[in-house]
Design a binder for these strands. Structure first.
Lengths: 203, 203
DNA sequence: GGAGTTTCGTACGCTATGGTAACTAATATT
DNA sequence: AATATTAGTTACCATAGCGTACGAAACTCC
C-alpha cells in the first residue's frame, strides 16, 4: 500500500491518513457519543484494524480528545473565519447562525460535537471540557471584538456591551444546537436563529 | 423494615421509597452521565441490591427515563412555578436565571441533567430526547405566554415577539448550563445571566 | 540484499457491567 | 395458621469492549 504523500520515513508507511481517521472518529463520536462507539467500529470505518488505531492515537480517551480538536479545526474554525471575513455585521451574524443550525441538523450527526463530548464520560473528560470551555470563550471573544469594532464605527449602540452580546450569541447557539439534537426541525431552528439576530444586534 | 407509609398491599413492603431511589438516580446520572453510572452504584446509594432496583424499574434505560421525569418534576417544575408566581416580570426572569445557574453550578452535578441525558446513548434515547424537547418547548411557551400578558399590559414592547423572547430565554439558559458543565465559574455565569435579562426584556 | 525501523493484522486476555435464577423474608387476607 | 403475594439477597451468567502480545509485512538506508 503506497497511498502516502508525506515525507518518507524509514519503516512501513501508515495504511491510513491520520487526519482522515480523525474525521471518521469525529463523525462517529458526534453521532453516537463517546460510549456509543467502540474503537473497532471506528477502525472498520477507516478500513484498518483496531491495533493500528491504538498505535497511532494511544487509547480511546486520547482519540476522542484529538477528534474534538479536529472538530474545532474543521467545523468551527472555518465558520469563524467566514464570520470575520464578512464586512456586513448583520450578514455575518446571520450566516454564522444559519451555518451552525444547518450542520447541527445535518443527517445523523446532530447538535454540537464538542458539547456532546463535554457531557460524555471519558477519562480525559477534564481536558475535553476545558478544551470546550476555551472554544466557547474564544468564540465569544471573537464576536465581542467584532461588535466592539462596529460600535467604534457607530453602527451599533453602546449597550448591551460587546462582551454581553458575544456571550449571548454563543449561548443562544448552544441552545439551538441542543434543540437540534433533541429533534426540533431545521426550519423551526433556522427561523428562531434569524429572529435572534435583531436581539443581538439591537434591531 | 417497616418504613413505608403508602397504602398497604399484600406482600412484603418495599425496602426503599421509589421516589427517593429516583432522586439518587437523578443525582448520579446528572453527575456522571448515563454510561458513567452502573446500576450497582445506584443500588448501593439507595441501600439496596441491584435486583431490587431491576424489579422496581425494569432495566437501566427505563431507570434513566424515569429519572429524567423525576428531574423535571423536582427541579424545573418548581422554578417554573416560582416564575409564574412572581408578579414583577423583571424579578421573575432574573430569579429564574439565577436559580438555574445556581443549581447548574452546584457541586458535583453540573449543567442541565436533561441535556446530559439527551446527549447520552441509552436505548430509549429517542424517548428521552423527545421528553427533553417537550420540556424545552413547554418552558418556552410558558415564558412566551407570560411575555404576551406583559405586552397586553403595556409593560413590554411588541417586538421582539413574545415567542421569540421565550425561545431565546430557553436557549440562553441552555448555553449557560453547558458553560457551567465545562467549568466556567458561577460568578461569571451569574453575571452573564443578569446581563441577559435586559436583552430579553428590552432594557 | 541485509539491517534497522515502523506498521499491520490475527488472536487473545481481562475486566466491567447489564441482567437473571432461585431461594428467602415480610407482609395481607381468610 | 395457612396461603397468596410481593420484595430482597446471594449468587451467577453472558457479553461487550478496551487494550496488547506477537509475528508478518513494507518501507529506508547503507
Amino acid at each position: 500500500m503506497v497511498t502516502n504523500i508525506a515525507k518518507r520515513h524509514p519503516g512501513r508507511p501508515k495504511g491510513f491518513i491520520p487526519d482522515e481517521a480523525l474525521d471518521r472518529a469525529v463523525e462517529m463520536f458526534w453521532e453516537h457519543g463517546y460510549e456509543g462507539v467502540d474503537v473497532d467500529r471506528i477502525a472498520r470505518a477507516v478500513n484498518v484494524t483496531k491495533p493500528a488505531l491504538y498505535r497511532a492515537f494511544g487509547d480511546k480517551p486520547t482519540l476522542l480528545l484529538k477528534a474534538v480538536e479536529r472538530y474545532a479545526l474543521t467545523y468551527v474554525a472555518p465558520r469563524m473565519a467566514a464570520f470575520q471575513a464578512e464586512p456586513d455585521i448583520h450578514k455575518a451574524v446571520t450566516a454564522f447562525c444559519e451555518a451552525t443550525v444547518n450542520t447541527a441538523t445535518g443527517d445523523a450527526r446532530g447538535g454540537c460535537m464538542m458539547a456532546a463530548a463535554a457531557l460524555g464520560q471519558s477519562e480525559r473528560v477534564t481536558e475535553i471540557r476545558s478544551c470546550t470551555a476555551k472554544g466557547l470563550t474564544a468564540s465569544a471573544d471573537i464576536f465581542a471584538k467584532r461588535f466592539e469594532q462596529e460600535m467604534k464605527a457607530g453602527r451599533l449602540t453602546r449597550t448591551p456591551s460587546a462582551k454581553v452580546r458575544g456571550r449571548a450569541l454563543v449561548d443562544l447557539l448552544q441552545g439551538l444546537q441542543l434543540r437540534a439534537k433533541v429533534g426540533i426541525a431545521r426550519e423551526q431552528l433556522l427561523q428562531d436563529a434569524r429572529s435572534y439576530v435583531p436581539l443581538i444586534l439591537g434591531k
